[in-house]
């Protein structure tokens, strides 16, 4: 890609000096742009941002996440989304507006311990995030293997316009549902799942290296032959 400069940075390190739009994980002090994270700084088209290499998942509205029901009250389920915030799934968003705790049994839909695929419906940092399961592909997860990777490595696993995920799916014959919070459901034949898990681990460990795509292709081809 033309006009993109990259460099490794640590918190507090000067990235560039000058007028730039500020992307994620940077801050400016008198026209000097500094990183706030350990990661890869990118300068392109007048914007500076840092792709972090560590850190917890911070929810963003419309993120696809995978969570675990940890508790429920009369009006909502509590969902662990592997973040520093507990998410809530309001019963009204599942049963509809006329939900009444007297008539509808919440346990019919989700029990404690169930895994769900959900979308972040609302999150403004003053309140805990709300999730929703209405939408295609959302709801109870009842089959597949679950893996957790660092949420900062998720963009790499997906790849540019989904290229990496397509490579892995084609190479293993599995379907991957990747939550932005780092939880992944792998569905497919057992030998494909084992291969996919191995590949996901490789991507997580080598997320920042330049020749990742080649390494992944090599791994998929090698285990495919065996």
């Amino acid at each position: 890609m033309p006009g993109v400069t990259r460099k490794y940075v640590v918190p507090g390190e000067l990235i560039v000096d000058g007028k730039y739009r500020l992307g994620a994980n940077v801050y400016a002090n008198q026209d000097k742009v500094y990183s706030t994270r350990v990661g890869l700084a990118e300068i392109s088209r007048g914007e500076v941002r840092v792709i972090p290499l560590s850190g917890v998942y911070i929810p963003r509205v419309d993120d696809f996440v995978i969570g675990k029901i940890t508790d429920y009250s009369a009006f909502a389920w509590e969902v662990d989304i592997a973040s520093c915030f507990l998410a809530f799934l309001p019963a009204q968003s599942v049963f509809g507006r006329d939900y009444s705790p007297a008539q509808d049994s919440m346990l019919d839909r989700f029990k404690v311990g169930d895994l769900i695929a959900a979308k972040i419906a609302a999150f403004d940092r003053t309140r805990d995030p709300l999730v929703s399961v209405s939408g295609p592909g959302l709801g109870l997860i009842n089959k597949g293997e679950i893996v957790k990777i660092m949420s900062t490595k998720v963009p790499r696993l997906i790849g540019k316009k989904g290229s990496m995920i397509k490579t892995v799916e084609a190479g293993t014959g599995c379907r991957l549902s990747i939550g932005q919070n780092g939880l992944i459901v792998v569905m497919g034949p057992p030998e494909g799942i084992a291969k996919a898990l191995e590949t996901i681990r490789l991507i997580e460990q080598e997320a920042h290296t330049a020749d990742l795509t080649q390494k992944v292709e090599a791994l998929l081809a090698e285990s495919g032959g065996a």
Binding site: Y8, V10, G39, L40, P155, K160, A210
Partner: peptide, 26 residues
């Protein structure tokens, strides 16, 4: 030394990637 420790932990001796772009689906 702090800086060098962080860099070698996270990036090893690897050079910054030149072509690969990391982007989410959004």
């Amino acid at each position: 030394a702090q800086k060098a420790t962080l860099i070698s932990k996270y990036f090893g001796k690897a050079e910054p990637p030149q072509q690969e772009v990391q982007e989410g689906p959004e």
